[in-house]
Simulated assay, not measured.
Amino acid sequence: MLRSVWNDFVGLIYPRLCLACQEPLVSGENHLCTGCRAELPYTDFHLLPPEQNPIGRRFWGKLPIRHALSYLRFVRHGRVQHLLHELKYQGQRDVGTALGQLYGAELHATGLAADFDLIVPVPLHPKKLAKRGYNQAAAFATGLSDGLKVPAGLNILRRNTNTKTQTKKNRAQRWENVATVFEVENPGQVIGRRILVVDDVLTTGATLEACGAALLAAGAAEVSIAAIACADR
């Protein structure tokens, strides 16, 4: 009783805010308000057959993947862009964890957890990791692990080169930028395993493709990919 009263008092002084719209959360809401939960641009790609999955088609002829998943559609100047900005540049790693938990629970409810043995985030270069303080893809992977009930391997992949930003590059340039920069730390951890590789945003898919190729080369049985949001090409 006293703890509840104290929490209510603290909430009046330091209200919890929705991660998407920054409006105060009410009792029973966590991370996202009810309005944002209802209005976020969900993809529902996990409900589509592979031949109808638009991000799955981006990998045709490039990387054999089992599932191609994205929780949200990236909409410029909308809630999703704000969420990703908070995650990557404002120190709000809870954004990635919360979205991962929500999406993981949704994927678990559809039975997809049985298709994955391990969740692996796209790594940051140590210099960038030290500057940011955390890996936003690892935050998403941690949340997915909680929701899917599938273990996460946060240090499976290593980025050997501190690549330049991908933002203004076309697909060929993006692939050239990341094609040889990832390697598996310990192949024994991935041999024969079905791995879900995750990142914050999927655009051309070059980064996830390079990570998936490294995992398959190290002996992974199969690779799937997932992102918080996918952008139109």
Results as ranks from 00 to 15, higher is better:
T167A: 15
P64S: 08
I228W: 08
I65M: 01
W6T: 10
E23M: 13
R37V: 01
D232M: 12
T165A: 12
E183M: 03
E23C: 11
W6Y: 15
V80M: 04
N186A: 14
V184W: 04
I13N: 02
N160E: 13
I55N: 00
G188H: 11
H108P: 00
G143L: 02
N162L: 06
L32C: 10
A68W: 05
M1R: 08
R159C: 08
N177P: 02
G219W: 06
E185R: 10
E106G: 02
E29C: 10
N53Y: 06
Q136S: 02
R174K: 11
V120R: 01
P49S: 05
A226N: 06
V150H: 10
E86K: 11
G91E: 10
N160K: 01
L99E: 11
V201L: 15
T34A: 14
H67R: 11
V184G: 01
H77N: 14
L215Q: 07
N160Y: 08
N186C: 14
T180W: 08
A130S: 12
D117E: 08
N53R: 05
A113G: 14
Q81Y: 14
L124M: 10
T165H: 14
P24E: 05
R3C: 08
H108N: 13
Y42V: 09
N186K: 15
R73V: 12
N53A: 06
E106R: 04
P64D: 13
A98S: 15
W175P: 01
L148S: 00
Y103C: 04
P151I: 12
A217G: 02
L32V: 11
L118K: 04
G91K: 06
F45H: 02
L48E: 14
L63H: 03
K169S: 07
D117K: 03
A109D: 13
R3G: 00
H125S: 08
L87Y: 05
T203R: 02
E106K: 02
R193N: 03
E86F: 07
I195T: 09
L215S: 09
A137Y: 12
L69Y: 04
A206Q: 01
G192Q: 09
R37H: 05
E86M: 12
